[in-house]
């Protein structure tokens, strides 16, 4: 799947670029984006180490397990395949909490930690499990308590009510989350039947 999408984007991009006479811009974009990827990783490196380190402490003390216990019913519905008390659940909860409070810097490392734990439960290391797909879908439609970035942009543009859109954002992301959960659940069942 990813192979085709990646191949398609690049080939179509080059073809369109040649027809548009924008091949110079395209060449420049290739080189620039490769360096951007490195910059992103370097930017991520410090916070990643910080949060995986703190996660290790939280896990050792039993804090993660306690946190996962509180939201167990919801987790059981979303991730029926993860055994209870598995460290993956704790990491998932912390990632959700970080997303909810808009802590992007914390959410990504915690999410990656959750994926690492989910991978330990995976019998086929190359293929995503249902739990992984559900987790990713929840992350792409993450509900945020206060969408700080967009409020800042609106304030800078001189809005009379920069935070007016909080309500609509909650509504839209709830719809997105619901649609994502339903779709992921349906597709998971469909795949199981095929097997």
């Amino acid at each position: 799947m990813l192979n085709y999408i990646w191949f398609g984007m690049i080939v179509i991009g080059f073809a369109v670029g040649m027809m548009n006479g924008r091949i110079e811009e395209v060449s420049q974009a290739v080189i620039d984006s490769a360096s951007t990827a490195v910059e992103l990783c370097i930017g991520l490196l410090g916070v990643m180490c910080l949060w995986t380190g703190l996660m290790a402490v939280a896990e050792k003390s039993g804090l993660v397990k306690a946190l996962a216990k509180i939201v167990r019913p919801a987790l059981k519905f979303l991730f029926p395949d993860i055994p209870k008390d598995h460290p993956a659940l704790g990491a998932i909860v912390l990632n959700m909490v970080a997303n909810f409070f808009g802590l992007g810097n914390a959410a990504t490392p915690l999410g990656i930690k959750a994926m690492t734990e989910l991978q330990k439960l995976n019998p086929d290391k190359n293929t995503a499990t249902n739990a992984m797909s559900m987790f990713l879908v929840l992350n792409t439609a993450a509900i945020q308590l206060i969408p700080v970035t967009i409020i800042a942009v609106r304030t800078a543009a001189g809005s009379k009510g920069p935070a007016d859109i909080i309500g609509t954002i909650w509504m839209a992301s709830s719809c997105a989350t619901a649609a994502g959960i339903i779709t992921a659940k349906i597709l998971a069942v469909g795949k199981r039947r095929l097997r």
């Binding site: 797909s133 792409t140 992921a184």
Partner: peptide
């Protein structure tokens, strides 16, 4: 984590 086959994840995320 080195997953290569993402199955239906992209489809579900795009629908969301």
């Amino acid at each position: 984590v080195g997953i290569k086959n993402i199955r239906y994840t992209l489809a579900a995320a795009l629908i969301a």
